[in-house]
């Protein structure tokens, strides 16, 4: 019995410093905050919440460089980074830090969407296949960011605008792009966005701001028509 106590004591002495080191270790989060449309750096308040929804950090990004820096965060923990700025949509991202027993700086860049009527957000991925109007498998994962965005900004209404894949029959193009916009609208409604907040628009000509590439510019590219979410009212 006495021996067991000694063994336990030795084990505690051996393990304790390591546990202590891990408990004392802090990590930092840094990155830049950019306007999603202009890509220019912006100065905003960046708040960090722990898994218990308690705010643990509030820092401000540098208006000239967009750089923010939050420290005293714990390795192995998951945090939510929230930004609530008057001229921008409320946005948040979740960051999980790996376990480490020495100081480390992790990074996460943040792009904020201006809360301004007429702001056009291009879908950053191809939600539809060539000439198709059903959402591609896997779209739901990347559209989740937009669901969160619109759920976090309940006063914002938006329009879905779709453009065709090629210069072709105007009637067919209009039919295709209206069907695509409706597919997206139904996806958002199915995921809890109120129907009256979403309107749709198709087009019979290709996107003038992002036309199909031709000649050398088309090398290594596969074009499908663009889709935009346009903020209408707030």
């Amino acid at each position: 019995m006495k021996n067991l106590k000694y063994i336990a004591l030795i084990l505690v002495l051996l393990i304790a410093p390591e546990m202590n080191a891990q408990m004392r270790t802090v990590v930092s989060l840094t990155g830049v905050v950019l306007d999603a449309i202009s890509k220019q750096p912006i100065g905003v308040n960046v708040e960090i919440y722990d898994s218990g929804n308690k705010r643990v950090q509030k820092v401000t990004s540098n208006a000239k460089t967009g750089v923010y820096f939050a420290t005293s965060l714990k390795p192995g923990e998951t945090y939510e980074v929230r930004i609530a700025e008057f001229n921008y949509m409320r946005q948040s991202v979740v960051v999980s830090f790996p376990k480490t027993d020495k100081y480390a700086e992790f990074s996460r860049d943040l792009t904020l969407i201006p809360k301004k009527s007429g702001t056009k957000i291009e879908l950053p991925f191809k939600a539809f296949g060539l000439h198709k109007s059903t959402l591609k498998f896997g779209s739901n994962v990347l559209l989740q960011d937009f669901i969160n965005l619109f759920k976090g900004n309940l006063t914002v209404n938006f329009k879905i605008i779709s453009f065709p894949d090629e210069i072709g029959d105007p009637n067919q193009n209009m039919q295709l792009t209206q069907a695509r916009a409706e597919s997206l609208r139904h996806f958002f409604i199915d995921n809890g966005i109120q129907a009256n907040r979403i309107s749709t628009m198709g087009n019979n000509t290709t996107d003038p701001n992002n036309p199909p590439p031709t000649g050398n510019a088309s090398k290594g590219k596969r074009y499908t028509g663009t889709c935009y979410l346009v903020i209408e009212e707030f």
Binding site: P124, F125, K126, A127, K136, F137, G138, S139, L142, R222
Partner: peptide
């Protein structure tokens, strides 16, 4: 392997050959 929502521009096997990384037009 399907899952990307855009052209897959690049790939790389891990050093232990167990994993593959891919980079795509879909920003992921």
């Amino acid at each position: 392997l399907k899952g990307h929502l855009g052209a897959v521009y690049n790939i790389s096997f891990s050093g232990n050959d167990k994993f593959l990384a891919s980079g795509s037009e879909d920003w992921t």
